[in-house]
Design a protein around this nucleic acid. Structure first.
Lengths: 130, 130
DNA sequence: ATAAGGCTTCCAGTTAGGGGAAGGTCAAGG
DNA sequence: CCTTGACCTTCCCCTAACTGGAAGCCTTAT
């Protein structure tokens, strides 16, 4: 199938499909006219990658997952370990964001937020109290 | 002071200070020998930016915050609104990460994680059950 | 005098594509 | 048969916020 159809059916932009080809992630064949010709199997891989990306895996991680997926002899332990590692990464990121949020909420709570120029948020960012 | 000292005192890499100069964020004077010469005021701005960055503000947001900080006539309402907007952005991001984590944990929990090739994680990413 | 270290600029690379130009191809309609 | 519009191709530049490295000047100490 042409790239437009593959894009629609995979839910990914055509630009992304071309990009995935340049980085050797999903390589469609070419038709006689030079158009990319995606097979059902290619489409399957595209969906797989799209889903893994939405779960927070990087392209390089997707490459590993894809090769594990294709390898009938892989051990599920490998995959599980990758998934759990990603979970701890995500937890760490969540923690950082929660810290930011907490501090920002606190600062906003201390700021009267009116037309007066006095602003505890800027003061604290500036570190005048630190 | 030279860039090395400013870097150390601000807690930011020298490379970052040079970068901030190229994007007109913090512009030090130059000494006769061509070296950047950071004033105490410049240093203050660098620290301010570093702190705002660590709170999740983008460079462009830092630029705004900095101009608000320098503007003695600004209203604290403007700043508070920026801060609250950032809080909702952060909350959204946290939500997304929590969704990812939930799904990944569920998948990992369903995977026995041994040497057998059968792997529910890959199966579900592949969408065989979808 | 020379060596070490700090400073300068510039170039290239990072992630994961997005925007858009210039041009080839295909299918339908007149 | 020709044209039009949609679709496809490659190519190059752009994003954020730096980071790394090379080549070369400046300063300081020995």
């Amino acid at each position: 199938m042409n790239i437009g159809t593959a894009a629609e059916r995979s839910g990914l932009p055509a630009k992304t499909l071309r990009y995935y080809e340049t980085i050797d992630l999903v390589q469609p064949l070419r038709a006689d006219n030079g158009y990319r010709d995606y097979s059902e199997d290619d489409l399957h891989c595209l969906k797989f990658v799209g889903r893994a990306r939405s779960l927070g895996f990087s392209i390089e991680e997707c490459r590993v997952l894809l090769s594990l997926y294709r390898d009938q002899n892989r051990s599920s332990g490998e995959v599980k370990s990758l998934a759990l590692h990603k979970v701890t990464e995500i937890e760490k990121k969540i923690g950082q964001l929660q810290d930011m949020k907490k501090m920002l909420s606190k600062l906003a709570g201390e700021c009267h937020g009116d037309n007066r120029p006095d602003c505890p948020i800027l003061d604290e960012i500036a570190g005048e109290q630190a």
